[in-house]
Design a protein around this nucleic acid. Sequence first.
DNA 1: ACTCAAGTGTTAGTCACTAACAGTGCGGTA
DNA 2: TACCGCACTGTTAGTGACTAACACTTGAGT
Lengths: 188, 188
Amino acid sequence: MFTDRGYDAVTVADVAEAAGVSAMTVYRHFPTKEDLVLIDQPARLIAERVAASSATLPVVHRVGGALVDAATALTGGYGDGDGPVASERFLLDCLRLMVATPALRARHLDSQYALQQAIADALGDGTADPDPDAAFRAQAAISACLAAMHTALTRWAEEDGRTPLPDLIARALTASFGDAVPAPGRQD
Amino acid sequence: MFTDRGYDAVTVADVAEAAGVSAMTVYRHFPTKEDLVLIDQPARLIAERVAASSATLPVVHRVGGALVDAATALTGGYGDGDGPVASERFLLDCLRLMVATPALRARHLDSQYALQQAIADALGDGTADPDPDAAFRAQAAISACLAAMHTALTRWAEEDGRTPLPDLIARALTASFGDAVPAPGRQD
DNA sequence: ACTCAAGTGTTAGTCACTAACAGTGCGGTA
DNA sequence: TACCGCACTGTTAGTGACTAACACTTGAGT
């Protein structure tokens, strides 16, 4: 319904009626109308991979690798050659809505803000880190990585999933950080 | 009022009453409640500086330099040694509200999205750029720069403006991109 | 049969925001 | 002076997201 008629033109009451329930029931399952569309980022998956990476690598390499890995796990990986599968179609529809609708776009960007905190925790895991300056530098690097990933997500939706998502993310990271991140076209 | 009682606890009717006008009048001057707090980013200023930079430099260097310059122009620059001045106090209050209030934070991040488009236009200015892949790489680099700047803004608000904003931005950029950006502590 | 719990519906209300209409004051014009 | 137009403001009524409080149904376990 959102894709056909536009996010703003569909009320929560419409969604409830189409689902055969009352509007109140919708709110009990989804805290806001925006959550009907937003895909919860696999924060735990990404944070785990960051925590598992070698602490000797630069931050952008650790985070970038985790993002590419997570995208690979989510979308089924490289080179199946079949274009997007059914489960990806839904992802693409949601992403298109997010890019096109200001309210959804803003919420999605803010959810990346939460993901940033989770990654920062995963980075410093194990070592007490009393250095606020190092924490600041890590936050900056993480947010830059996530912004590059968001650009890749947008591009992925725009070109309808033709290029595998992990490849797009790797290219976005390389365009931003040069060779300090895993190179596109292969996985670590 | 927002700082004292919290953004959500103050209604538009409250603001209107305090200003001695009707709620309708508030909406005629500010399109949304959020715009009462949001500071419009100096998009034109930044875009001009990007367009004026040397096209032979890497994208992150051009954008990063423009961001540091714009911050210098806005906050009065380095080393006056007096801490934040009165005009900066208001900026800091707004920033704190933005970081603390989810709705404002989301809107602010989305406004950076618009800034990203403006910078992308400024980058490709003059040269017809039919290469969608180069445009994608530029978008990725720009968004990463802006994310680093946002981290610096957040940090600036957290430490109450003690460190000069241009310095924080330069350090955030260096933490993300290494020596591909202007070094902190001096200006180009 | 009784009970508890989870899920659902209803109602009334708050608040952001919009549209349509009606003043009100003020400078320029004849 | 009388008139006109324009910018600004207020009022009213309405939509839609979202919340709180309360009553109801249903199904599982005892």
